[in-house]
């Protein structure tokens, strides 16, 4: 897929190529060039299948990584396009007009990560959560354990353990 990368690199300011497998690569592009890159991939290079759109929270560097994974069935290839966004201003242009199904992914990302996609159909409507008023739950700084302890009451007599610590203690005893 080096040839594909060089063709794209001549047109767009791409980051380095990550070759995960013979038929799966990842490239990084800035938000401003994402749409034209996706159009090039879809209409010229044959990557017509939007496999998924999701986000990764890199809280240490204050960034969200959006991953647009596209598939080319005829050539048996996949390319993941990464876009890094600031966690403070997490807004991205919508692509629902390129793939209608992207509206669902964007609606979920709005709810779960707080990443906004203005003009995306129903993006501000509740998708999975109902009446949620905390920070978006899939952000790394949302602590599920703290939330559960503050929100729910344990049954009397019930013990709660950290799974990783419990497994180590069970196998090796305390102190490991």
């Amino acid at each position: 897929m080096q040839a594909l990368y060089h063709r794209l690199k001549a047109l767009f300011p791409l980051g380095e190529l990550t070759e995960q497998r013979e038929n799966l690569v990842f490239v990084t592009v800035d938000a401003a060039h994402l749409r034209s890159l996706l159009l090039q991939l879809r209409d010229i290079e044959g990557f017509t299948h939007l496999v998924l759109l999701t986000a990764v929270d890199w809280i240490e560097t204050g960034e969200f990584q959006l991953t647009y994974l596209l598939g080319n069935r005829a050539k048996r290839q996949d390319i993941g396009v990464r876009v890094m966004l600031s966690r403070e201003q997490a807004t991205m242009a919508t692509i629902h007009d390129l793939w209608p199904t992207a509206a669902t992914y964007q609606r979920e990302l709005r709810e779960m990560f707080g990443i906004d996609f203005p003009q995306s159909p129903g993006v501000n409507e509740e998708f999975i959560l109902e009446g949620w008023n905390d920070i978006p739950p899939y952000r790394r700084d949302f602590n599920t354990l703290d939330y559960a302890e503050a929100t729910y009451n344990d049954r009397p007599g019930r013990e709660s353990r950290d799974p990783a610590t419990y497994m180590r203690e069970k196998l090796y005893g305390e102190g490991h």
């Binding site: 990550t18 995960q20 497998r21 799966l24 990842f26 496999v51 998924l52 999701t54 986000a55 990764v56 929270d57 991953t67 994974l69 996949d78 993941g80 990783a164």
Partner: peptide
């Protein structure tokens, strides 16, 4: 690292996108 693995389940393409960060836990 990051990768995507797919398979053909009875309903269509099923896949896992896994991101790791060098720790003992999945990043995503």
């Amino acid at each position: 690292g990051e990768t995507y693995i797919r398979g053909e389940c009875s309903r269509g393409e099923y896949g896992y996108y896994l991101v790791t960060d060098g720790s003992g836990y999945p990043r995503r």
